[in-house]
Design a protein around this nucleic acid. Structure first.
Lengths: 159, 159
DNA sequence: CACGCATGGTTCGCCACACGAACTATTTAC
DNA sequence: GTAAATAGTTCGTGTGGCGAACCATGCGTG
């Protein structure tokens, strides 16, 4: 009997924490005049420029959705399309000056807020949580959404 | 230096697992011809009928957003508005026959998929993860989104 | 009782988002 | 050098989300 309970327990915990993080993330974005998607785009681009296709893979968006997102972000002066000198079809999406600053500010604020969520856990528990979640994430090949800063996007050169 | 690393570690882990769960949830919904929001609505209503205001609080949606969501779901024959006999302004949103069946099927499928995410963890680790995440969720008063089944929505009578 | 305020929902106008299908332009493969 | 793959855009459609304005009904106080 304990088995069954445990099983839906993980699911529930995952789903609810996901909603929680989402809500906080969206709230932070809103505070900076961003939609969650734009915020996410900015955070991804903080690490390095990306081509549209790569972005689509990272953000799990269809090409057309991405085109529109980049269009809107461009109109707001946050990002810019630059021609890829190796492939004249392709495009590199990069942060503008303004976009970079906003990204930095938003990123910091979002991290701060999310960091407060597990305030009830002590250091050891936080470490455990991090370790377990990281493994789940790695096991399910989640792209490097959010935070490519210290992680230095190693695959960038190697392709 | 170890401190700083740990800090962004929790944040990253939370954000990425959140994206992961979201993606899986959305995929499951899509498989059943639902949008994630509709799926969420159905799952919430599985436990019991709700008034619009309550729903708005649970789903964190503005009133108008909810009206539209319920409209669309009604048009698809998934839910139904019933008059509240105690308050003639109010409305109770309930699942239709069809909506109930679909909710059940979707809910089961979504749970199965999400349950597979932590497949790399052993029983003890899953239990730990559940416990830690549950505490985070409880500490941040997340409404009872998803799963009100075994949890029997106790506040329903007491108000 | 009547006035006014609070509450529960809907309507409206606006914009963001997400997708597939169809299209253009380049690159690559043969 | 043509054919197929690849990178992006455009277009049409439906969904989602919000605030402001609005209509009812309920409620409280003089």
């Amino acid at each position: 009997m304990g088995k069954a309970e445990e099983n839906w327990g993980v699911v529930t915990a995952l789903v609810r924490s996901s909603f929680l993080v989402n809500a906080v993330y969206a709230e932070a974005a809103r505070e900076y005049g961003l939609t969650p998607q734009q915020g996410q785009l900015l955070c991804v681009l903080m690490a390095q420029p990306y081509g549209m296709s790569e972005l689509g893979a990272v953000l799990r968006l269809a090409k057309s959705s991405l085109t529109e997102l980049v269009n809107r972000s461009t109109q707001r002066g946050l990002v810019r399309r630059e021609p890829d000198r190796k492939d004249r079809r392709a495009v590199q999406v990069t942060l503008t000056e303004q976009g970079g600053e906003l990204a930095e500010a938003f990123y910091t604020a979002a991290c701060r807020r999310i960091d407060e969520l597990p305030a009830g856990l002590d250091e050891a528990e936080r470490a455990t949580l991090t370790e377990l979640l990281s493994r789940v994430v790695r096991d399910n090949n989640v792209p490097m959404v959010f935070l490519g800063r210290d992680e230095a996007a190693p695959s960038a050169h190697g392709r």
